[in-house]
Design a protein around this nucleic acid. Structure first.
Lengths: 236, 236
DNA sequence: ACCTGAACACCGTTCAAGT
DNA sequence: ACCTGAACACCGTTCAAGT
């Protein structure tokens, strides 16, 4: 309700039983409405009834365009990904920098839509585009297909999944997140006195799970190893 | 269901209207029942009514022992983790091997309970135990608190999250997984002919997302980098 | 052919009532 | 104090009926 619309479109808010015009629904229109709701109200509010309300349509009318909710979710994920990924990355003459840039792009995408982090989204069409870029960079690094394939998967594992975890924490309801923080703090204070010497030893130098330095360190370490193994790399 | 109470007292078999004895319920008993259901029927079948049926108790009686479902889920996750992690790892004189062993332990745990992979489970009590071990290994590697903290987080990011993704795929309903496989194959065949030269180039050398070699490669690369940076490591 | 309405089989959760 | 029963406010989904 009370949706602020950019543009001239006006939503007359009413309990209207007005029948929707024929053929006024489409996959694209539905996905757009789904995106609006997901970003405005959160993913757990994205229901067929909410989309119906947003479109002034009956919730069950969506079943003519999507087999079930899963199909709609995948369509939405693909839409967002395509928007974030296409045409942004261009190969340079520094293949390591390219890999790093791509990692950050994907990471940023997850953090922009953190609620989608826990959604299944592998083997989707956009995956092919990402993989093509990664493989291209490794190829320019001088690797053969075998190493390139392996390292591309290794990078993918780290980037996509580390981003997922971080985004998932971000997507948690603030209350739950703080509660976890508290639990952690309490436990840590208690454990320090017992037999957790290394936890005390590291003290404040252990970055928070939400601290991006953890993820950046992992990426650096991984890329360092790969760069070192590139054919023609300086042996030190 | 519809027991016809045609006059007088009814002795017909009834679906367990037997009242549960007082104090016969506890958090532990409930968590055990929850584990049974989760492992037998899958996580999506783990509902309060299912637990109630398993225990011959009324679904709402669980609310006396758990504030809500989230609290029950966390209790279950903690139980499984504690069982997998405690007392298994012992430090050796090879700190890199220790880190690798721990990574595999955590990875195995996720793959044993793949359905829990997508559940929030950071900053739980068992995290402190894992972190203590990781930090201990890095400390024996000669790192100071600052590097140890950073690298511990880096490893954690990779291990936990890569395992999550892999387990998540494993936890998908077989139908959905195969459907994704199909989509991927179709796209790949089509894309190969277009402008995805590197995907064609890598051919069959790109491991499947489910192939454990991707994750193992990532782990090796990360540990290599860390070992190389250890104070006193051979410069090549 | 497309959209609607009513209905079904579930959820988690609350709360007054039983014992 | 602990367990139960009924009820509430939701879900996704099916299907016959309207237009």
């Amino acid at each position: 309700m009370a949706t602020t619309k950019a543009g001239g479109e006006v939503v007359t808010e009413k309990r209207s039983r007005a029948r929707r015009p024929r053929d006024s629904l489409s996959r694209e229109i539905i996905v757009t409405a789904a995106e609006t709701i997901a970003l405005r109200d959160g993913l757990e509010r994205l229901t067929f009834q909410a989309i119906g309300a947003e479109l002034d349509a009956h919730p069950t009318s969506l079943y003519r365009h999507f087999r079930d909710k899963d199909e709609l979710m995948l369509a939405l994920i693909d839409t967002l990904r395509t928007r974030s990924y296409t045409g942004v990355l261009v190969p340079t003459d520094d293949w390591v920098a390219d890999l790093r840039a791509q990692a950050h792009l994907i990471h940023d995408h997850y953090l922009r839509y953190p609620e989608f982090a826990l959604q299944r989204a592998v083997r989707r069409p956009t995956d092919a585009l990402s993989m093509e870029f990664t493989l291209g960079a490794l190829r320019r690094g001088g690797f053969g297909p075998k190493e390139a394939g392996l390292y591309a998967r290794a990078i993918g594992q780290l980037v996509r999944s580390a981003s997922s975890i971080q985004a998932a924490i971000e997507a948690m309801p603030a209350g739950t997140r703080d509660e976890d923080d508290l639990t952690w703090e309490l436990d840590r204070r208690r454990l320090d006195l017992d037999e957790h010497p290394s936890l005390r030893w590291v003290g404040e130098h252990l970055p928070d799970v939400r601290d991006p330095r953890g993820w950046e360190a992992a990426l650096d370490l991984l890329l360092d190893s790969i760069a070192r193994r590139a054919p023609g790399a300086a042996s030190d």
